[in-house]
């Protein structure tokens, strides 16, 4: 927190000293300082070049530097079986994009219900996923941590129920070293604690989107709620997955960040 204050005063100094410079330059500097702060908090700002998740559309505005934080741990919470399936689907979409760069991912779970052939729909070859099925939470956490330490993986999905702050910190430390992206999917957690993950998402199913006039079920659609994001602005979007891309059903969604921006309290 101290660091933030320092940085803010620095911003002010810069602003004073370089009064004559254009407003644009100031904005650049603030942007730069913001990046420094984010970096000091333990996660490296991914460069646009090698981030396969660099273009997610509207959602990007919510992320700290305008880009989906890879090399960090994201938490997904789901409360019923349908939401769990949707979360798995959404995670698979992100993982599919990550796997275009590197070959393999690890999927750790207790009592796996995921049906591998369905992954083809989200751009993943199911044979490139290594499932690790354990019987105890302790082993699951251990396996997730070990997998997150391995920089050769595209990503790690961990399906666990409960996790405390200490455990999540361990995972965070692991990814800070290895830069692997982790997705923790928590199905019906007993408590929702504060954890050291960079974000918390809720994915809920929405009626599928199909072209007007066509019968039957169309493309899977979800209500994606980004409830928490470190250094970013939470938001909610309605997204459908088609042709290997996210499509926003309602482009006029107002995020909390937008509200803040309008009222000038941000």
């Amino acid at each position: 927190m101290n660091f933030c204050l320092d940085a803010n005063t620095q911003v002010c100094e810069y602003a004073k000293n370089e009064d004559m410079e254009g407003l644009l330059d100031k904005k650049h500097r603030i942007e730069e300082l913001r990046r420094m702060i984010v970096a000091a908090e333990g996660f490296v700002v991914p460069s646009d070049l090698n981030n396969p998740l660099s273009d997610l559309g509207l959602m990007d505005k919510s992320f700290p530097t305008g880009i989906f934080p890879i090399g960090a741990i994201h938490e997904f919470v789901s409360s019923d079986a349908a939401a769990a399936a949707s979360s798995s689907g959404f995670i698979s979409c992100l993982m599919g994009m990550l796997m275009k760069q590197k070959g393999l991912c690890v999927w750790v779970s207790i009592g796996n219900k995921l049906y591998p052939p369905s992954l083809t729909g989200f751009g993943i070859d199911p044979d490139r996923v290594i499932f690790i099925q354990v019987s105890r939470e302790k082993d699951a956490l251990w396996a997730i941590e070990e997998a997150l330490k391995c920089p050769s993986l595209a990503g790690v999905v961990g399906e666990i129920r409960d996790m405390d702050l200490t455990a999540s910190r361990r995972l965070q430390l692991a990814v800070e070293q290895s830069r692997v992206t982790g997705f923790l999917h928590r199905y019906r957690p007993r408590r929702i604690e504060n954890v050291a993950c960079v974000s918390r998402w809720y994915i809920r199913p929405l009626p599928s989107s199909s072209d007007p006039g066509l019968p039957g079920i169309g493309r899977p659609a979800w209500q994606v709620e980004l409830q928490k994001i470190r250094n970013g602005k939470p938001g909610t979007w309605q997204i459908c997955w088609a042709a290997g891309q996210f499509h926003y059903l309602d482009a006029q969604v107002v995020t909390k960040g937008d509200v803040y921006a309008q009222t000038g309290t941000w």
């Binding site: 393999l104 591998p116 044979d127 499932f131 690790i132 070990e146 997998a147 330490k149 050769s152 993986l153």
Partner: peptide
């Protein structure tokens, strides 16, 4: 990745690692 899986197999058993 081979090393990672060896470690996992060592602790939770070879049976728990699956590819389909």
């Amino acid at each position: 990745i081979g090393h990672l899986l060896d470690r996992i197999a060592g602790r939770v058993g070879e049976e728990s690692i699956r590819r389909y």
